[in-house]
Design a protein around this nucleic acid. Structure first.
Lengths: 155, 155
DNA sequence: CTCGGACATAAAGTCGACTTGAGGTCAAGG
DNA sequence: CCTTGACCTCAAGTCGACTTTATGTCCGAG
């Protein structure tokens, strides 16, 4: 099993060394250590990183991604079927995101005619009749498009 | 011109008082002051807030929203046509977001068959061939779906 | 005159996904 | 022996959009 330095992994994956250290700390990837304490990654880390990237693009948080990765078998190397299984559920998520955006756009079309922008009635300023009471943090994207926290019971 | 307290504006708009103070500080809304220093908002602030909300849902940052609001005429009250003009450009943005998500979903469909997730070739882990070198911060959504910084020269 | 409630300010905290910086270690090359 | 470069750790900083907390002020009612 050919081992890679953090610099090599970074060069081949495009993931910064600092991010790789962070991912290891978060349990997304694992590495052995040399006598001197330097990380050595197995080549399989590249596929894991591809998965992480893909999942991020679909909108998953690192917490969700870690949970998904933890369902991979530990004893044998994961197969293409394993990876395909993990990414199958993403389609629904993407469909929902697309539907939400489409709804927003259609609301926009109907709003442009009247310029109403009513807080109560306009589909643009009030999509899904959301009162918006959630924790702090950036919220530039519609709640409909933000990932559902893994602890939530909402499907 | 009937004036509203911050509590009244908050109740009618659903925007928290702390957020209203923040918006005033950021130049998104303006308020006069009573002798005691309390804010008094004109009723027109409700429409402005509706605009802010709608723009946020489309994916604009507060900086971009402020820039848009600054194009409103100062001397006369904005008309429905003014608001419609501002929101007209949003359609293209939404269309682009929808297109990006759809492309991602189609890439997913082709990837699920093979389970490849190659960093180089897979449309999922590498949508748009992006090398991803931008500032810090949360990046859970594809760069394609993130708003373009207003300082950028990309139209 | 005192109390409660609504308001004020300023500074610090929150969230996620990292990056940056300070300071230290290790192996190879000149 | 000294430097260079790649690596290490740990703590703190970054971004956006707010919220939270601490502390203080104003006003009307009892």
């Amino acid at each position: 099993m050919q081992l890679l330095t953090i610099g090599q992994v970074s060069a081949r994956s495009g993931v910064a060394p600092s991010a790789l250290r962070y991912y290891e700390q978060q349990g997304l990837v694992t590495a052995t250590r040399t006598g001197g304490g330097a990380r050595r990654f197995p080549r399989s880390v590249l596929r894991r990183l591809a998965f992480v990237r893909a999942a991020q693009n679909v909108g998953l948080s690192l917490t969700e991604i870690r949970a998904a990765l933890n369902t991979l078998p530990g004893e044998r190397p994961p197969t293409a079927a394993d990876w395909a299984r993990l990414s199958r559920g993403w389609r629904d998520r993407l469909d929902a995101q697309i539907a939400a955006l489409t709804q927003l756009r259609d609301g926009l079309d109907s709003c442009i005619g009247c310029g109403c922008l009513s807080l109560d009635r306009c589909a643009l300023s009030n999509p899904g009749d959301v009162a918006s009471r959630e924790g702090a943090g950036a919220r530039w994207l519609s709640p409909l498009l933000r990932r559902v926290p893994p602890t939530s019971n909402a499907g």
